[in-house]
Design a protein around this nucleic acid. Structure first.
Lengths: 190, 190
DNA sequence: ACTATAGCGGAGGCTTGCCTCCGGTACTAG
DNA sequence: CTAGTACCGGAGGCAAGCCTCCGCTATAGT
């Protein structure tokens, strides 16, 4: 619920000035995060407004289209992911990459949605993807240079693999972790 | 489009007797397969009827609930999957498992839906899962006994891993194959 | 404290999908 | 060929979601 770091990635809608408006804006973003996590991209906007304790009109004023709202949530998550890349930078090559991917899995409140939309092209998506790549690629390259990662895998392959696994249904968290581990082991040289 | 092998898994709705009815039934099933593949479980029933060239009433007569329709499509796919398990049986242990999983990926017109619903419990789902497990588990065990597969992986882990990857968005078929290969490599002993 | 105005919120028109019901059609058995 | 009936199909009522519009409210600057 880190509700004060806002834009930075430029494309973002800007936070309102008046105090009540700002409160509503944040409540909407937070409700939207939950809703998207739970129902994917198709979550009901009226439901989101309701959960935020706000009229539907207010939602539309802040986020004229569903895409605007989704982008804002999504960009927030991407930012956190970029920050995480910095935090793991001092681990050994493979461990750093692994830790970051683990983070990728945990953060994704937008999991389901990211998974559905990974190919979509919109301005915000392009920017977000670029930022995410800029953050993760170095970790990936470093691991590859250190010989800790097969050379026939691409960074994009790995991201999609992980997001696929992230979005899938598992019996429990243990299983998710176990499966992720299996898949990541496939990335190491034999 | 193998539209003549029907039930066998018992739970299925039975195929009508009158010729026009049978034609409609099959058209619905086929349209539903496409629709579920494209839009997941939530596909519009009216759209399905339209695509099948049939009135909405006819759809409801054959499949009183959305679940009934989905189950029928799903069971069809599971049957084909069971059949595939027999066909690969004479390959070497690892290759057999790999080929079957490959088949799993290709067949899944219900991919997206399977992915969404893997945890759902309904009569039909239980039966289908059991059948699928009965078909695949031997391949899995054989590979494990032959030392071609790590011993800390469960069959269920693998199925979920593969169905996660299957449902994810990829740039092209090549990438999907590549990623699947990466993940499967993680299953082999080091 | 006062006021101009940014911001609120929900009523309501519209679309889309769900599902039922029943007058009409066309298959099949005899 | 004919009759009986199984089956067809879509009209129509209902629910849910989308989005706009505008009279009312609360805030912030003086």
């Amino acid at each position: 619920m880190t509700e004060n770091s806002r834009p930075a990635l430029g494309v973002a809608v800007k936070r309102p000035v008046r105090s009540d408006a700002r409160r509503n804006f944040d409540a909407l973003l937070s409700a939207a995060r939950d809703a998207f996590a739970e129902h994917g991209t198709g979550a009901s906007l009226e439901e989101i407004a309701r959960r935020a304790g706000v009229g539907i009109g207010t939602l539309y004023r802040n986020f004229p289209t569903r895409q605007d709202l989704f982008d804002s949530v999504y960009l927030g998550e991407i930012e956190e992911l970029c920050a995480a890349a910095v935090q793991v930078a001092d681990l050994p090559p493979w461990e750093a990459l692994e830790a970051w991917l683990q983070r990728f899995v945990e953060y994704a409140a937008t999991k389901k949605a990211i998974y559905e939309e990974l190919n979509r092209d919109s301005e915000a998506f392009r920017v977000a993807r670029e930022a995410m790549y800029a953050a993760g690629q170095p970790l990936f390259d470093r691991a590859q240079d250190a010989g800790a990662l097969r050379t026939d895998a691409l960074f994009d392959d790995v991201l999609r693999m992980v997001s696929g696994l992230t979005g899938a249904g598992f019996v429990d968290e243990d299983q998710r972790t176990r499966v992720l581990q299996l898949a990541l082991d496939g990335l190491r040289p034999r």
